[in-house]
Structures are given as structure tokens and as C-alpha cells.
């Protein structure tokens, strides 16, 4: 066996023979994925319920839009009372060709939406009745992939975060432990290059990150959550790998600066946790204040997350690779250079 392979194997065994590490690598982030996934599963799919009285082509057409939920009532009086009490946003009655529409103006947005839908349906039916071809046609579809569900947002966030945590901790703890236990000194007495030790750790980190990603994607793709790899998802792979490298470099820096495992995990948490909160792991970044969005731009996690989402969710083309890849590469180079500078083989 080559030195490279046996070192990688030694690191890998140190990793998977530790229950706590396995938990924080796989189970812990998955818990977030599952909780968020279940919590937001039905978000956005909610329909507006409207009271309906009578029957006719308009009522039928409204039901077919799939946007409104029609709640049957025997008389318009009863339905209007419910609207007045705030239990329904609007009610509609069709008797032959006569239509009555009553709405509550208290929620203007919802009232406007329902009015728009009702008007649209009525106009369409009127036009169809004249047997004329419409002069203006609108090609309508939403900008996201049609399969868009909250899980598409949640998975990249939780995945980036989970992978970031594991990469930082893995690199830092190996470095600290091997230095503390004099393994680094001992390796230094063997004819092995420092780069061999380094690359074996890089390969182990990437390998573990890929297993994590596969598990997250696999769980997300379960029917309960319904994640789909759509559009240009393949382009997310380079962003993912560069992200892993950026966090590996941060881990090396933490490991180079800390003497004990306790100090290293503390420092790793201090680095990763704020990033997680400000980079869209736990809540979408575009809902946070502008200054916070600006601040989060300095975090590699933000760019990893955004970059992956660009392809997995927004289906953007390869030009969207540029920014995240550049930022993440810069992180790898700068942080990597600093850690190489402060690295020591032994505690002096």
C-alpha cells in the first residue's frame, strides 16, 4: 500500500470509528433537513377558499383553475355573512347568467387576487362565447422550474452547512490530534512528503463530503419531501467541491492555530455557526435585512449555498459559475496560504 493510501485510510478510520463524529456528520444535519422539510412541505401549496352558491360554467371554470378552493353554501345570504364575519375572504353566486361577487376589503391583497381570478375567468368565458380568436395571448409560466417545492431550497442550505461543518472539523481535529499525539513528528521522521499527508486529508474530506451530499439528496428525494434534481444541477458540482476545499482550508487554519481538540472544536464552531445563520441555512437569506445580506457576502458558505441553489433551483446557465467559483477559489488560496504559514509540526 502506498503512503498516500494508508494515511488516507488511517484518517478515514479515525473518522468513522468515532460515534460522535458520525452523528454530527450525518445524523445532526439530517435532522434539520427532515424538520425543515416536513415543516415547509405544504408551504406555497395553500389554496384560497371562497364561498360558492349555485352552479354554472363560471363556477365550474373557477374550480378548474386549481387556485381557488370552493366551499359550497346553500344561500348567498349565509355565504355573505361568513365573509362579513371574516371567515371567508369572498363569496360568489351564479344563477343562470347572473353572477354575484362579494368580498371583504379588509385583506386587500387577497381580495385583489380573488377578484383578478374571477374577472379573468369571466372574461375568458365571454370571449369564448363570441367565437372570436383572442387578439392578445399571454404566454404564462413561473420563472422557477415547475416542480419547485420548498425542499429544493432547504436541501442546498442544509447540505452546504453540514458539509462545511464536517470539512472544518475533520481537517482541524486530525491536525490537532496528530500533532498532540506526536504522530506528525513521527511521520516527519519517515520519508513521506508533507504534500502526501495534506492531499490524503483533502481526498478524505472530499470523499466524506460526497457521501454526505448523496445521503442528503437521497433523503430529500424521498416521496415525502419530493426533491428533484432538475435543470442545470450538474453545474452545482464544481461549486460544491470548491466549497469543500474552502472549508478544508479553514479547518487547516483552525488546526494550525489550536493546540487542543477542545480549542479546535470551539474555534470551528465560532467560525461556522455565524456563517450558517447568515448564509441561508436556517432561513432564506433574501428575507433578512439588506445589511445582513451584504455582510453574508464575505462568507464562503453564502457563496457555496447560493451557487448550488442557482443550479439546483433556479436552473441558471454556466455563466452563474463565475462568482461563486472565483470567491471560493480565492478563499482556498488565501486561507490555505495563511495556514501553511502558521503550520507547525509540533507544539514548541
Amino acid at each position: 500500500m502506498t503512503a498516500f493510501r494508508s494515511l488516507a485510510l488511517a484518517m478515514l478510520k479515525g473518522f468513522y470509528r468515532d460515534r460522535a463524529t458520525l452523528f454530527f456528520t450525518f445524523v445532526f444535519p439530517l435532522m434539520f433537513l427532515v424538520v425543515f422539510g416536513l415543516l415547509f412541505r405544504d408551504a406555497g401549496a395553500e389554496k384560497i377558499t371562497v364561498g360558492a352558491v349555485g352552479e354554472g360554467p363560471v363556477i365550474t371554470a373557477l374550480r378548474e383553475t386549481g387556485v381557488l378552493e370552493l366551499e359550497r353554501h346553500d344561500s348567498m345570504d349565509e355565504a355573505v355573512r361568513l365573509v362579513r364575519d371574516g371567515d371567508l375572504p369572498a363569496a360568489i353566486e351564479q344563477r343562470g347568467e347572473a353572477l354575484t361577487f362579494r368580498f371583504a376589503a379588509s385583506d386587500q391583497t387577497q381580495a385583489g387576487t380573488i377578484r383578478g381570478i374571477v374577472d379573468g375567468v369571466v372574461n375568458q368565458l365571454n370571449l369564448a362565447d363570441t367565437n372570436q380568436a383572442p387578439r392578445y395571448t399571454v404566454d404564462t409560466s413561473n420563472v422557477e422550474d415547475s416542480s419547485l417545492k420548498p425542499i429544493q431550497y432547504i436541501t442546498p442550505g442544509v447540505m452546504s452547512w453540514g458539509v462545511a461543518v464536517t470539512s472544518v472539523f475533520g481537517a482541524a481535529l486530525t491536525l490537532v490530534n496528530w500533532r498532540k499525539k506526536q504522530v506528525l513528528r513521527r511521520i516527519r521522521l519517515a520519508p513521506v512528503r508533507a504534500t502526501t499527508v495534506l492531499t490524503s486529508r483533502v481526498v478524505v474530506t472530499i470523499g466524506v463530503a460526497m457521501v454526505q451530499a448523496l445521503i442528503f439528496l437521497g433523503i430529500g428525494a424521498l416521496p415525502v419531501f419530493g426533491l428533484q434534481l432538475v435543470g442545470t444541477w450538474v453545474l452545482a458540482v464544481p461549486v460544491f467541491l470548491l466549497g469543500v476545499l474552502a472549508f478544508f482550508a479553514i479547518g487547516m487554519l483552525v488546526g494550525a492555530l489550536c493546540r487542543t481538540e477542545e480549542a479546535a472544536s470551539g474555534a470551528a464552531n465560532i467560525v461556522v455557526l455565524p456563517m450558517a445563520f447568515l448564509s441561508g441555512t436556517f432561513f432564506p437569506i433574501d428575507q433578512s435585512p439588506a445589511w445582513m445580506q451584504a455582510v453574508s457576502n464575505v462568507f464562503p458558505l453564502r457563496h457555496m449555498n447560493d451557487g448550488i441553489m442557482d443550479f439546483l433551483v433556479r436552473g441558471r446557465d454556466a455563466s452563474a459559475l463565475l462568482v461563486p467559483c472565483l470567491v471560493l477559489t480565492a478563499f482556498v488560496v488565501v486561507v490555505g496560504a495563511i495556514s501553511a504559514k502558521v503550520f507547525q509540526w509540533e507544539d514548541s
Binding site: K13, G14, N177, W178, K181, V183, R185, R186, L189
Partner: peptide
């Protein structure tokens, strides 16, 4: 070389 403090890989 055998160092005074034993140097072993963790968990192997």
C-alpha cells in the same frame, strides 16, 4: 526512531 512519548494514529 522510537520517541519517548508514544506516537500512534488515533483509533487504529
Amino acid at each position: 526512531v522510537q520517541l519517548q512519548a508514544s506516537s500512534f494514529f488515533e483509533k487504529l
